[in-house]
Amino acid sequence: MAFLRLSGWEQAQMALLAGDASTRCYLRLTGGPDHQRAILMDADPQTGDTQHAFVQIAGYLTAAGFSAPRIFAADIAQGFVLLEDYGDGLFAKILAYAPAQEAVLYRAAADCLAALHRQPAAPGLLPASADVMAKLIDPAFEWYAAKATSENMAKAKIATVALLGASLRRHASQCSVTVLRDFHAENLIWLPERTGICRVGLLDFQDAVVGHPAYDLVSLTRDARRDLGPGVAALTTQHYLSQSPVEPAPFLDATAVLSVQRNLRILGIFVRLAFEAGKTRYLDLLPRVWDHMLYDLAHPDLSDIARVITDNLPAPDSKLLTKLKAACPQTPTP
């Protein structure tokens, strides 16, 4: 590969790593210059999944004192980025065998978010306004509802977007901080040899926007991929609030409405991944996503949205999951 030759890594050994919900491919390189390791991130430029944003935001985070991977080399036009290898200490992997560490890791993640929110927002990011966020739930209807039922959901979609937009404007209109958007246990790496906020290695931040401070805390505490231990979500939120100038009650209102927005969108995104990319493992996560959404739909100010959603969208029970899996293209899940 010409990129590796020009970067001085052509002699390195390569091993494919597990991918994520994107179209990117990751390779671990060993035996590089001075026996270094690195990660080669490869995104096909034709997909529009450009690496430019990753490089830009990594530079912002590093300059602000956070642990974002160092960039060793990049060819943006070809979609290649060679970056620092943080190892295999994903929060999710650590907690699978050391669940007693959960409170410690989540407290560190909250420290990281609080510190990030004390920084000026990264330049050049798009604002995640209430109207933009409301429209981002389209996949819930275009994919989840469309594959789950034959009912016409046009009116339900219009009503949900309108009601959600109004709730977002009331409770979560503030666009003031860098929002990484996928701040959860499979994108955070524990670096215990470092200190302070640098113990939390950050990944998958190329879709960052300027948005509300509660959004990434929602990503962390309403995780689509794992259940948190009893009380951990509340303790993590309290720890964040202890370091933030925000008023707790309005912040918790914002948390509820942003959770509904995020989890509605995820319902559709996960079904799209199953049908378009053969990643059927994401279907098994739908019940947890649904439960997160229902939990926050219980907020008193979201009763109208709750009624529209529960009257129109079917719950992802075992019967529906079986139906969705049977309808998916027979492509092996990576």
Score class of each variant (00 low, 15 high):
169 R>G: 10
171 H>L: 10
172 A>R: 05
172 A>I: 08
174 Q>E: 15
176 S>K: 13
182 D>G: 03
185 A>W: 13
186 E>Q: 01
193 E>S: 06
193 E>P: 03
194 R>C: 07
197 I>V: 15
198 C>N: 14
200 V>H: 05
200 V>L: 10
204 D>I: 07
206 Q>K: 12
206 Q>E: 08
209 V>G: 08
210 V>M: 14
214 A>V: 00
217 L>W: 02
222 R>Y: 02
223 D>A: 01
225 R>I: 06
228 L>D: 04
228 L>W: 08
230 P>C: 05
230 P>F: 03
231 G>S: 03
235 L>T: 02
237 T>E: 04
237 T>C: 04
238 Q>F: 00
246 V>Y: 07
248 P>F: 02
248 P>C: 07
249 A>C: 11
250 P>R: 08
255 T>I: 10
257 V>F: 03
258 L>I: 04
259 S>Q: 03
259 S>I: 01
260 V>S: 06
260 V>A: 06
263 N>Y: 06
264 L>N: 14
266 I>E: 05
267 L>K: 00
268 G>R: 14
269 I>Q: 12
270 F>A: 04
274 A>P: 05
279 K>F: 07
281 R>I: 06
281 R>Y: 15
282 Y>K: 12
283 L>Y: 02
285 L>T: 10
291 D>I: 02
292 H>I: 13
295 Y>C: 08
